[in-house]
C-alpha cells in the first residue's frame, strides 16, 4: 500500500509537470497555412516563395488572430508562405518549444512576440546561427540578435494616448490605478513607464496609486479592479493595460455600479470593448490596426529573407504607407496609435 501511494504521489507530480508543459500544445484551427515548401537554403529563390514563421505570445485570442489574418493576406499578395503558431497560454516555455520546432524546420524568417524577452534571446541567437533571419514583432527582445523590431506604435505614442484619454475623462486630475497583465511583458512595462513619467509631467494633480498584475486572466483582472476600487475609495480611473484586462476593468466598474464615477481606458480590441464603450464603463480603447501590423510583419520577414535593406520610410502596400525605420534602434514603426471610441468600434471585425 505504501509503495502504491508513493507511486501515486510521484505520478501526481509528474502529471502536473506535464500539464504545465503540454498546455501550450493544444492545436488550434489555424496552426499553419501550408507546408514549409520554401525551407532550407535561404535567399536562393530570388524574390520567390519565402517561408515566414510568426510565433505570437499565445494563439486563439482575437488580437493575434487579427495579426494572423493580416500576415496571411500579405503572403497572398507578396507571395510567401505564412506559418503561424503560438502557445495556448502565455507561457515562455511552451513558446520556446514552438520556436525550436521552426528552427528545425529551417524557415527563412522567424518572427517572435516573446513572452519573456530574456529567455527568448538565446533561442533567437540559435536561429540566427542556423541561417534564419530573426525579428521581433508586437513585443521586443532588445537584448537579442533580432535584426528588426516591428513595432505597432511607439512606446511614447501608446503611453501618452492612454494617459490623455483617461485624464480627459477624469477631468485632468484624480487618482488612478493600472491593471497590467504579465509581469515580465516588455511592451506593457515600457508603456507603464511612459504613463508614469507623462502623468507626473503633464497632469500634476493626477496620481497613479497602484499597479497590479493579473496575468492574461479576465476574471482575475476584473476582481483586482474591484479590489482596487475598494482599496482606494477616491479612485476615479482605471487602466486595463492589455486585451484581457481592458474589458475586465470596465466590467468591474459596471458591476460596482460606478459608471461615470470611475472611468477606464485600456488596450482592448474593438469587438470586446464595444459594449463597454457604449455604456460608458470604458471611455476609450487605444490600439492600432492589428491586421496592418500582421501585414507589416509578414512583409518585413520577406524583406529580411530577400536581403533587402529597409528604408527610412517604406511604402508597404496601398493601405500601409510611410512606415518609418530607425536604423540605430532597428525599430520599424507602423504609425501613430488608433483611438477606438463608441463611434468607430463597429468598424473593425476583431
Amino acid at each position: 500500500m505504501r509503495k502504491t501511494r508513493t507511486k501515486i504521489a510521484a505520478g501526481l507530480g509528474l502529471a502536473l509537470a506535464l500539464t504545465v508543459t503540454a498546455c501550450g500544445e493544444g492545436s488550434g484551427g489555424s496552426a499553419s497555412s501550408g507546408d514549409s515548401g520554401g525551407s532550407g537554403a535561404s535567399g536562393s529563390g530570388g524574390g520567390g516563395d519565402y517561408t515566414v514563421a510568426f510565433v505570437p505570445k499565445l494563439q486563439g485570442i482575437p488580437y493575434f488572430e487579427a495579426m494572423n489574418s493580416g500576415g496571411k493576406a500579405a503572403c497572398e499578395e507578396i507571395g510567401c508562405t505564412w506559418l503561424y503558431q503560438g502557445p495556448v497560454e502565455a507561457d515562455p516555455a511552451a513558446q520556446a518549444d514552438i520556436v525550436r520546432s521552426y528552427i528545425q524546420q529551417g524557415v527563412d524568417s522567424l518572427i517572435v512576440a516573446p513572452n519573456d524577452p530574456d529567455s527568448m534571446a538565446p533561442l533567437l541567437k540559435q536561429a540566427a546561427d542556423a541561417g534564419i533571419k530573426v525579428a521581433t514583432a508586437d513585443t521586443d527582445a532588445p537584448n537579442s540578435v533580432r535584426e528588426v523590431f516591428v513595432s505597432q506604435a511607439s512606446t511614447e505614442g501608446i503611453g501618452q494616448a492612454l494617459t490623455d484619454a483617461l485624464l480627459t475623462a477624469m477631468g485632468g486630475k484624480g487618482k488612478y490605478a493600472i491593471v497590467s497583465c504579465g509581469q515580465t511583458a516588455q511592451n506593457l512595462n515600457s508603456w507603464i513607464d511612459v504613463q508614469k513619467a507623462y502623468t507626473a509631467q503633464k497632469y500634476p494633480d493626477a496620481e497613479i496609486v497602484d499597479i497590479v498584475y493579473a496575468g492574461e486572466d479576465q476574471a482575475a483582472a476584473t476582481q483586482m479592479a474591484t479590489d482596487l476600487m475598494n482599496a482606494h475609495p477616491d479612485l476615479t480611473g482605471l487602466v486595463g493595460e492589455c486585451t484581457s484586462s481592458a474589458p475586465g476593468v470596465a466590467q468591474a466598474i459596471r458591476d460596482a455600479g460606478k459608471i461615470a464615477k470611475v472611468f477606464s481606458v485600456g488596450l482592448g480590441t474593438p469587438q470586446s470593448m464595444a459594449p463597454y464603450l457604449s455604456d460608458g464603463s470604458s471611455s476609450a480603447s487605444i490600439l492600432w490596426d492589428v491586421e496592418n501590423l500582421g501585414y507589416l510583419t509578414a512583409w518585413t520577414g520577406v524583406q529580411l529573407a530577400d536581403g533587402k535593406e529597409l528604408q527610412a520610410t517604406n511604402d508597404v502596400s496601398d493601405k500601409i504607407t510611410g512606415v518609418t525605420f530607425d536604423p540605430s534602434s532597428k525599430v520599424l514603426l507602423l504609425g501613430p496609435p488608433l483611438t477606438i471610441t463608441k463611434d468607430n468600434a463597429g468598424d473593425y471585425d476583431y
Partner: peptide, 9 residues
Amino acid sequence: QGTSTLAPN
C-alpha cells in the same frame, strides 16, 4: 463573472 467576451483561456 466574466466580460461580454469569452477568450479561449
